[in-house]
Amino acid sequence: MSTRAKVEITVNGRPTSADVEPRLLLVHYLRDTVGLKATNIGCDTTSCGACTVLLDGESVKSCTVLAVQADQQSVTTLEGLAELSPGGEPHPMVRAFRAEHGLQCGFCTPGMVLAAVSLLAEHPDPTERDVREGLEGNLCRCTGYHNIVRAVLSAAGKDPDAEQRREAESDAARIAPAFSTGEAGA
């Protein structure tokens, strides 16, 4: 059978290492070897994004990365997000998810939050549509995404009400140009 391999992975700023089977998935390394249970497994087809973590700062689905592939690299999970934030305060994304009720059962949340952090790193000034498309790799069954989108907009420093209104108005202008908000009162 397979020989074991030694991995050294920095997890949330701390060095970890273990002799592992090469087939060990990164998500199981994080959950079972390191003991950080926030990262969840929601599917087996790289579809749901519940297992999303940051690998060297970029979002990845840790069910589709081998632990050996992350050797000598750096992983951030939900538990480590506070350490990215100055002064150990809750991360702005974490604060926004709470303020906007961007979570219900919480299962998709760790992955969703990290996907959102990665999204804003790449698109610091997103529109509602950018956020929706940028989160296409993360499934949530509880929230209908409405408040998740608001949370991410809010974490980007935008007013979610204004952004959603802008999106609605641009839809309205497209759907019913003669009757869109701008002209309806005229």
């Binding site: 790289t46 994004g49 970029e58 979002s59 689905k61 990365v65 990665s118 790799g137 993360n138």
Partner: peptide
């Protein structure tokens, strides 16, 4: 292609 996580890998 795929989603952002997939495109990162």
């Amino acid at each position: 292609v795929g989603d952002p996580q997939v495109r990162h890998r």
